[in-house]
């Protein structure tokens, strides 16, 4: 679905110095997968994301979206339709005066006929659970609701892939949960490829594959269980592991035999329950 070949990207500072943001990054993301990208502020995550649909074009190397190179201008229209993006701040992404019109904005730009547009807007709003709000004014919605409207606007374009750049950073726990449930549904039920950039380790733990970036390079790329079991490595990179993973790791260090992937509260509680019961016998 998405492919980067030896991608290098630099920003030039005012003094004319080059700051390398992406350093020879190669990567392939399969159709239908759910990939989380982690890394500190400034590690290159967002810059990488902007390469996936040609907002940025690499200075060296190439990026392919759905097989189309992003550096060829003739492809851009189709690439931007098939690879949608949702950003951090919902307020910056909402343009119209009603929810419905906002979702229709992208379709109007594509020149989709009225009937078809109506159908697609309704479907998109239903898929994010915002259909009942279609006539509301966006500024009256909560952060999580606004973000779901922004997602609906992307879905209406029928993309094969959506890049989420810290979509929950500005939301409260409830809004975060709503957005994460929507993302999981898009991936699970509609088969949309998901790339999720996040600072929240509990969110990354819900993906199938975690890519960790540091100083413009990919330093880890594996299943969440594998990535988070390297607690020292993750901490050294300036990231956290989920609190229960950290707890189990501390117990393992003290000599307790805990096996398996301890990412979620439920698994962890079950494993500890078994150990505590064995001890009582």
């Amino acid at each position: 679905m998405l492919k980067c070949e030896n991608v290098t990207f630099c920003y030039e500072s005012e003094e004319g110095e080059n700051r390398i943001i992406l350093d020879d990054v190669s990567l392939q993301i399969e159709k239908g997968s759910f990939v989380a990208v982690l890394g500190r502020n400034g590690s290159g995550k967002s810059t990488l994301a902007k390469h996936f649909n040609g907002v940025l074009v690499p200075q060296k190397g190439r990026v392919y979206a759905n097989g189309m190179p992003t550096d060829e201008e003739k492809n851009l229209f189709e690439i931007r339709r098939s690879v949608g993006m949702v950003f951090q701040n919902p307020d910056n992404q909402i343009v119209a005066t009603t929810v419905e019109e906002d979702v229709a904005f992208g379709l109007e730009n594509l020149g989709v006929p009225y009937e078809e547009m109506h159908k697609r807007v309704n479907e998109a709003l239903k898929s994010v659970g915002m259909y009942e709000y279609r006539h509301k004014e966006p500024h009256l919605l909560s952060g999580g609701q606004k973000q779901r409207v922004a997602i609906a606007g992307v879905i209406a374009m029928k993309p094969e892939c959506i890049i989420f750049d810290e979509p929950t950073a500005m939301l409260d726990p409830k809004g975060r949960k709503e957005v994460m449930e929507t993302i999981k549904k898009l991936n699970g039920e509609m088969g949309i490829t998901i790339v999720l950039i996040t600072h929240f380790m509990e969110e990354a733990a819900k993906s199938e594959r975690v890519i960790v970036m540091d100083k413009g390079k990919i330093v880890m790329d594996d299943k969440p269980g594998k990535v988070f079991s390297s607690v020292e490595e993750i901490t050294r990179l300036g990231l956290d592991v989920p609190a229960v993973t950290k707890l189990c790791n501390l117990l393992i260090k003290k000599g307790i035999d805990i096996r398996g992937e301890m990412l979620r509260t439920k698994e962890c509680a079950e494993a500890l329950d078994t150990l505590l019961r064995e001890r009582e016998c």
């Binding site: 726990p173 409830k174 509990e202 989920p242 609190a243 229960v244 707890l247 509260t265 439920k266 962890c268 509680a269 500890l272 329950d273 505590l276």
Partner: peptide, 14 residues
């Protein structure tokens, strides 16, 4: 509907 720390959730479950 407020988030409690994950460790607290674990202890409650136990």
């Amino acid at each position: 509907g407020l988030d409690v720390p994950q460790v607290t959730r674990l202890l409650i479950r136990l």
